[in-house]
Design a protein around this nucleic acid. Structure first.
Lengths: 139, 139
DNA sequence: CAAACAGTTTAGAATATTTCTAATCTGTTG
DNA sequence: CAACAGATTAGAAATATTCTAAACTGTTTG
């Protein structure tokens, strides 16, 4: 009906996990499905946990954190820091930035080509630039 | 010798606090002195607490948090979010951005005129832009 | 296909940071 | 200088995240 989510239930996800060297376990597959099967998502560990529970998947919060970090380390997603005391994980790994609604806590993507940061100064010492985050705070 | 910090010990600080409607109490004066008497500073609550203790000023951590938030609300400093689970407070209130050393946790200013963010998309809904943070992560 | 092993998951404890609370204290005002 | 609003405090509480050690499970091997 809507997507092909139900036709090829886990094949994509299994491949995706294998491709980055992660064993496709029940929990990781369920989380990967929630995360990657419906477009770009911005979630906290807690929110993903709630979704998993609501979907009848029994996963501990510790496993959620493990999985989010493993996915992030593997380059399947990235972490966005906008609020101290809360981490957001973003399934969009392309070059892009964010709107952050300070009232509701909602994050929204800004495509990389819609913002340009020019004339960056040299990084200090022998340091090299890992990435540049632009956060547009709205309210 | 170095600065005039010792010549007019508390006058500046008292005025500064009064100007924003904060009662110049012992603790607030000591903290304001530490924060504003030596150029631009980037500190966590914990670091400021340690400095205060080292300088023989007895202040509780709760008071440090109170003061940092009051100073921030009053526009005397601003909060920089670069790392989830740790808040940095910055005494530089001019328009500027930051280098963040992901290895050491050190923050460094990038003057506002050295970076330009162009072609920002419209903020969603009836939202308005509060501020734009650029964080250049180095390692 | 079963045993064995490495990698995973788990609950709960531990840690870290920040906020809250209620009692005490202190600038300021009259 | 008394009175009061506002500030400070220690400790408890809240929140988010990480750690730990035991149980479990995918995968590989014989």
């Amino acid at each position: 009906m809507t997507t092909n989510t139900n036709e090829r239930p886990y094949t994509d996800v299994v491949d995706r996990l294998r491709a980055v060297g992660l064993r496709p376990t029940r929990q990781r597959m369920a989380l990967a499905k929630l995360l990657f099967d419906s477009g770009d998502r911005h979630l906290t560990a807690e929110q993903l946990h709630d979704e998993a529970m609501a979907g009848g998947v029994r996963v501990s919060l510790a496993t959620i954190y493990n999985a989010l970090h493993q996915f992030t380390d593997a380059g399947l997603m990235c972490e966005v820091v906008v609020d101290s005391g809360r981490s957001y994980f973003d399934t969009n790994t392309s070059d892009h930035h964010h709107f952050y609604n300070e009232t509701t806590g909602q994050l929204r993507d800004i495509p990389g080509d819609q913002i340009s940061v020019t004339s960056l100064p040299e990084p200090p010492d022998g340091m090299s630039i890992d990435r540049v985050d632009v956060i547009v705070r709205v309210r």
